[in-house]
Nucleic acid binder design. Structure first.
Lengths: 194, 194
DNA sequence: TTTTGTTGATTGACGAGTCAATTAACTTCA
DNA sequence: TGAAGTTAATTGACTCGTCAATCAACAAAA
């Protein structure tokens, strides 16, 4: 049975299983053995590859973050002009994928983890900064004198709307979620005659 | 030691200890015995009064929520006119108390818990609805045709800004946090010539 | 003496991490 | 080519710790 080159395959399977398991449990309170079982291997092997539970979680979070980053880059690649590009960034935060139950679970638990795990806090800051600087780059070209305000407002709105929809009683509705953010953005531009 | 009428005192002590303990741990992963010890009693007694761990947490959350509700009512009581009252509601979400480390911790963990505990989800919805209807009541008098948009935007902005400041690298700064929300509010009014 | 308050001790379950041992695939060199 | 040696993959069984919950029993008040 032992084939060579299994490491990346197994690691990927564990990451995927971790996200699924956290999604199903709604908590970080999932056992290594649950994760390992879902990924089709023994607990010992999970430990062998990742070293410990927290490192499994962090790998899973890095994965979610990297997908998100790719989506943003993808959206930017096909958008021209600062206004369209800013809107693309906003939209990327509200794709259907980001509203999958397990992804929501991962995000919320990630926030909590960031309260205590320095490594998680670092990762989170990377995400925040990237969103910030992406937005800022476009907004500077639209309203140089109000970049800070606008960036702060839009970034916060994104997080807030996401949170409300993720936790809302009526399930997540990606399409409806973007609306308020875009409205704010356009209102702000309009006010400046753009 | 056994004095009568201990129940409310013990319960209050446990609630307070729970919040403190969650704050220190940053997680809901605190043991009943840690809580009980901090509250100055045995684990058995904690179980005796609350029945179980989850019920202790929920009591703690109800407490945080009720304090928050009281603050909003207090702020409303001294504000006249829809504009001032709306601003009062906004400001109430950003009092120093809400940015205490342990309260932040409680909130984030509460969000996570709401993903799986129906009772927690119910409580959360109570909070969300109250904020919504409070805002809506004032906004209707300012801009009847845009109540929905405005309420949604402001509520989301409150949550988002709170989240960002709670998790931001530079510690929470209540004063700076309100600014973007008030800015948005005033901008929206101004746009409507109010 | 019944009710309320209180605890130490115990139980039963579960979980993270470790280890020794097994298997298969690759490598080397006689 | 094929025997001997090396390394990656993999696991079952085990350790050690922890924790929620229960219980039997004691103390004080009413």
């Amino acid at each position: 049975m032992p084939k060579l080159g299994m490491e990346p395959i197994r690691k990927a399977a564990l990451v995927k299983a971790t996200i699924a398991e956290i999604g199903q449990a709604g908590t970080l309170d999932v056992t290594v053995s649950q994760i390992a079982r879902r990924a089709g291997m023994s607990t010992a092997l999970a430990h062998h590859y990742f070293g410990g539970k927290e490192q499994i979680f962090l790998a899973a979070m890095r994965h979610v973050l990297s997908i998100f980053g790719a989506e943003v880059r993808g959206a930017l690649a096909v958008s021209e002009g600062p206004k369209a590009r800013a809107e693309a960034i906003i939209r990327a935060s509200f794709t259907a994928g980001n509203f999958r139950h397990d992804v929501i679970s991962a995000w919320l638990n990630f926030y909590v983890l960031a309260l205590t795990s320095p490594e998680a806090a670092r990762l989170l800051r990377v995400y925040q900064r990237r969103l910030d600087s992406n937005l800022r780059h476009e907004l500077r070209q639209l309203a140089p004198d109000a970049v800070d305000e606008l960036t702060e407002g839009i970034a916060a709105l994104i997080d807030g709307v996401y949170l409300r929809h993720a936790l809302g009683s009526d399930g997540p509705t990606p399409a409806r979620a973007v609306a308020p953010v875009l409205r704010f953005f356009r209102l702000a531009l309009q006010e400046r005659g753009l």
